[in-house]
Design a protein around this nucleic acid. Structure first.
Length: 294
DNA sequence: AATGAAACCAACCGCCCACTT
DNA sequence: TAAGTGGGCGGTTGGTTTCAT
């Protein structure tokens, strides 16, 4: 047998919490500590609420040290970096932002930050990232459709483009085994790039010392900080010229989408080159090249 | 000033996984 | 082992506020 039902759905209050209810919940938790059993809490605290509702109210609003109000630029950058790395795992993202709740960050991303970064008003961007199975035909078919949908979107105006500065804190990479493996491969220059992006770029080491741009999950260009040279790497490890690689990216995309003007592509090419020469930026680069341009 | 549209965000819903019985 | 719950999570809803006309 299992446990008793969590609450009598017909006899619990829904909707916004009153100040009196907040006070009761706060008092109870201040006296007895955060619930070991949320389901039993409402009755003990004298609340006609579902235990889950109490938990949510406490975690998202009443507990100490909750930050409300505007997000800082640093918080924006952390959210963007982590979203680009792990996707919409809001609880993990929230764990990196003291005082912020997953709900808060989720709302902020969906209503403001995504638009701020994209500079446009579009439905949520899809980031299959590492959870996809890159080489299954079903996955590739799905991703290819996704690529085209993204590619057919109009380009933003130049002044609405936001490039994020380099990110040094990439510790989150090590919290997920897949990420860790990919990161290790990354270091050696044979990183299997994300199939979710026609083009993406990332820093290839945790301190942002090496920049990388990739195309179609196969080809890439790496800047070697020691020599200052750019080097193209294919899967067979042959080198090729940066200019040619970027040109082929643009041409290929142009063929696929058929919607971009030549002048815009030239402009984008210059921006991509600038991104590479400016150094690290895990999500900033990936977002800028992957979402805006290709 | 009135009104409709858009943006915001607290709260709910439903699913999943670990755990209990 | 099966049945069922608690806690946690991400997605969605809908009421309220702000903005645009």
């Amino acid at each position: 047998m299992g446990r008793a039902p969590c609450c009598d759905k017909a006899n619990v209050k829904k909707g916004p919490w009153s100040p009196e209810e907040d006070a009761k919940l706060k008092d109870f938790i201040n006296n007895y500590g955060p619930a070991g059993n949320w389901i039993a809490l409402p009755q003990k605290a004298g609340l006609k609420r579902c235990g889950k509702s109490c938990r949510l109210r406490w975690l998202n609003y009443l507990r100490p040290n909750i930050k409300h109000g505007q997000f800082s630029d640093d918080e924006d950058r952390i959210i963007c970096t982590l979203y680009g790395t792990i996707g919409s795992r809001w609880s993990i993202i929230a764990s990196q932002l003291p005082g912020r709740t997953d709900n808060d960050i989720k709302n902020y991303w969906n209503t403001k930050l995504r638009k701020k970064i994209l500079g446009i008003n579009q439905p949520p961007f899809s980031f299959p990232l590492q959870t996809s199975t890159p080489h299954s035909s079903q996955s590739l078919s799905h991703l290819y459709t996704s690529f085209l949908d993204q590619a057919r979107r109009p380009l933003p105006s130049a002044d609405s483009i936001h490039f994020l500065p380099p990110q040094n804190n990439t510790s989150i990479l090590y919290s997920n085994s897949n990420q860790f493996i990919q990161h290790e491969e990354f270091q050696y220059g044979y990183y299997p790039m994300k199939d979710s992006m026609l083009v993406s770029a990332s820093c290839s080491s945790s301190d942002g010392s090496c920049s990388q741009i990739s195309y179609g999950g196969k080809d890439r260009v790496v800047k070697n900080e020691e020599t200052g040279n750019f080097q193209g790497l294919m899967e067979d490890r042959n080198s090729f010229a940066l200019e040619d690689q970027l040109g082929s990216i643009v041409d290929h995309h142009k063929q696929r989408s058929g919607v971009l003007e030549n002048s815009q592509l030239q402009y984008d090419l210059e921006e991509v080159k600038q991104l590479i020469t400016s150094g690290g930026g895990l999500f900033g680069e990936a977002g800028a090249t992957g979402m805006y341009y290709f």
